[in-house]
């Protein structure tokens, strides 16, 4: 599996009067064509900031971006602003969370999508229009040739997100970053949009980075999962592997805290105690240790003093995690799984 996107030791730091906010601090991952990477984390974990860095959206702000982002062999961070702009929207495109605020209220849908095409192609306006109709049709907007004259407020939420997807895919990019693409939508519409994204990915062989807080969405969409906490990757590996054999207490917490449609309803939910850390003054050692209920199992003061390395886990080489626990697998099977999915305990033992 040849990775055509590799991110290596990416850091995005924002200097503020109170100190440096390390929104992303040493993030590394890779992604192959036609595959989907799910980035999971809570607000402030650095997932959106990192993906904006791939698009070069921090250029022109006071953010300090370092590390390496290689797309098809080119280090995007070394490109000039103009070279980066030429790739933006053409090779890398983005889909945003709230399609209403992400579309300009004063321009028609057609105009805004055509603009994305015209900026990268030297074609006539009517040719661009034909292409827009084709794309709108492709993403399932009925009567596309008429609806492209509508303004965003005349579209429903699901239609707007379809239009955003059409805009992102109109230049046939090799990488699409979808930042919480369905969070603002209803579940049945979410299902439509996720199906659409998968269809399009198959057709265009696009690589997708799917940023979300919803493990369910990741489970259905992603090939690989990267769990982020306080600007760092804390667990990374193939999706199914991470969801069935998670080895990092934060991932356990995410899995256990959300109720699902089959769990027993008699007990209490198992939340992660405390609140997400401040990125200005992140905790020492493992950033998760103040909220971690398993830190007693680690001898000494290790969790508080030393940041664990992102190391291969117990099952597979390509499953890495950042945790000091000596035998996470046993802890997961004996303490977490019985609450999470009691029906699975016997199978796995």
């Amino acid at each position: 599996m040849e990775a055509f996107l590799t991110v290596d030791d990416l850091k995005v730091h924002f200097p503020t009067v109170d100190g440096v906010v390390k929104a992303t601090d040493g993030l590394s991952f890779g992604l192959a064509r036609g595959k989907t990477l799910g980035i999971v984390g809570e607000s402030g974990s650095g997932k959106s900031v990192s993906s904006s860095a791939i698009l070069g959206l921090h250029r022109g702000t006071n953010a300090v971006v370092s590390g390496e982002i290689r797309l098809d062999g080119n280090n995007l961070l070394a490109l000039s602003d103009e070279e980066m702009r030429m790739r933006r929207g053409k090779e890398v495109a983005m889909i945003f969370q709230d399609p209403l605020s992400s579309l300009h209220p004063y321009f028609t849908i057609g105009n805004q999508i055509a603009e994305a095409y015209l900026v990268h192609h030297k074609v006539s306006k009517s040719a661009a229009r034909t292409r827009v109709v084709e794309m709108l049709d492709r993403v399932g907007i009925p009567q596309a040739d008429r609806r492209l004259n509508d303004y965003p407020h005349q579209f429903s939420g699901g239609m707007r997100q379809r239009a955003m997807i059409a805009m992102a895919l109109i230049n046939d990019p090799s990488l699409v970053i979808a930042d919480e693409p369905t969070t603002a939508l209803d579940v049945t519409v979410q299902a439509q949009i996720l199906d659409l994204l998968q269809d399009l990915q198959r057709d265009f062989n696009t690589a997708i980075i799917l940023i979300t807080h919803d493990l369910g969405v990741v489970a259905e969409m992603a090939d690989d999962v990267l769990v982020m906490y306080a600007g760092r990757a804390v667990e990374y590996g193939p999706c199914k592997e991470i969801l069935t054999h998670p080895e990092m207490p934060y991932t356990w917490g995410l899995l256990s805290s959300a109720p699902d449609l089959t769990a027993s309803t008699s007990g209490r939910l198992l939340p992660i105690p405390g609140t997400p850390p401040s990125l200005l003054n992140p905790p020492s050692g493992c950033p998760f240790h103040p909220r971690c209920t398993h830190r007693d199992k680690v001898p000494g003061d290790l969790c508080r003093t030393t940041l664990p390395e992102l190391l291969p886990g117990h099952h597979r080489e390509d499953h890495t995690k950042r945790c000091h626990l000596a035998d996470p697998d046993t802890v997961f099977r004996t303490e977490i799984l019985p609450n999470l999915a009691p029906e699975l305990v016997e199978e796995s033992s």
Binding site: L57, R85, R88, M94, H104, P105, V119
Partner: peptide, 26 residues
Amino acid sequence: TEDYIRTARAKGLQGRKVLFKHGLRA
């Protein structure tokens, strides 16, 4: 700082177009 400005930049529009077409209009 509006979201649609971010969208305009993400399309690869030139900076002055982002400012004069998308930013100033609003």
